[in-house]
Simulated scan of single mutants.
Amino acid sequence: MAVIKIAIFQKNLHKRISPEEISKIQQTKAHFLIFPEGYPHFFQSDSPENATKHEKEYQDHLLEISESFSGVILGGSHYRKNEDGNLVCALPILQSLVLVDFYEKKSPSSLKEPGVDPGKTESIFIMGGLRFGLIVGEDLENESIWEEFKKEDIEIVFYLSHTDERRSYEEDLTYFASLAKEKSIHLIRVCGPSEGKPARSLYASPSGINWKVGKIEEDKDVLKTLSVNVMRSYLL
């Protein structure tokens, strides 16, 4: 059994990380740092296609954080044209000032993300001494991804999301506690507040909710370091 230290940053999608926050991130000495879906979103774009113009600025901000943080950075997500020329919602994966890979959202919303194609990347990665699953936004309801996680015996899943406002705060906790128990996984969910929309980051395991953002913190920036016990690890 190994203990994985995971720093999650519930961060306002439209605000840059300050030097003071970078210092706090560095002090966590975590193996992973996870940002919400849609972070960083500093520019006003009228469409995902238009947002691709800012890809380099988004990535440069994450690389700036990587200068001081030696662990794996996951996220948040931004729109880009992939190697096949398809418009996708991509989650950048960085470590040690290197943009290592991308996870592409498999289930983009045709309503919220017009013109965005389903991603073709793998959903399972090995980095930072850990084999883990990644899902973004609507991927949560993609059964083929969950079937793959089960087949490959994935025990920890990072979920970068927006808050589903169809559920209340309490209903959210019940939903994710049940999901983690049903799938026998550790589920780390990271959200970011944006334009009055709440953020409900949490950590659910088969035994229940291990940590959650409080109701009064739904509109706040929250940096939290979690310690997660995993049975199978690599190179730690």
Rank of each mutant, 00 (worst) to 15 (best):
F35M: 12
K29P: 12
F32C: 09
S47A: 14
H78K: 02
E64M: 02
Q59G: 10
T52Y: 06
D46V: 15
L33N: 07
R80S: 00
E67M: 02
Y79P: 09
P48M: 12
H78V: 02
V72L: 14
K56I: 09
V72E: 11
K56S: 12
I25W: 05
K56R: 07
L62F: 13
I25T: 01
L63I: 00
P19A: 02
Q59L: 15
D60Q: 11
S45R: 10
S68T: 04
L63F: 08
Q26W: 01
G76E: 02
S23K: 15
G76C: 00
G76A: 09
E55A: 05
E20G: 11
E67A: 01
I65P: 06
D60P: 06
Q44H: 15
D60A: 00
A30F: 08
P40F: 02
Y79L: 05
S70F: 06
S45M: 06
E21R: 07
R80C: 07
L74A: 13
I73S: 10
I65A: 01
G76I: 05
L63Y: 00
E37D: 13
I25F: 07
E57M: 07
H41Q: 14
Y39Q: 12
I25C: 04
I34Q: 12
Q59P: 05
H31S: 12
S70Y: 06
Q44A: 15
E67P: 00
L33V: 11
E20A: 15
E20H: 12
G75S: 12
F32R: 03
T52A: 02
N50Y: 11
Q59R: 14
Q27D: 14
K29N: 15
K29C: 14
E57H: 02
H54Y: 09
H78L: 06
L33Q: 01
E64P: 04
T52K: 08
H31T: 11
Y58W: 14
P36N: 10
R80D: 02
P19S: 00
Q26L: 05
H61G: 02
E57K: 07
E64L: 13
G75D: 00
G38E: 08
F42G: 05
Q26R: 01
R80K: 15
K24C: 11
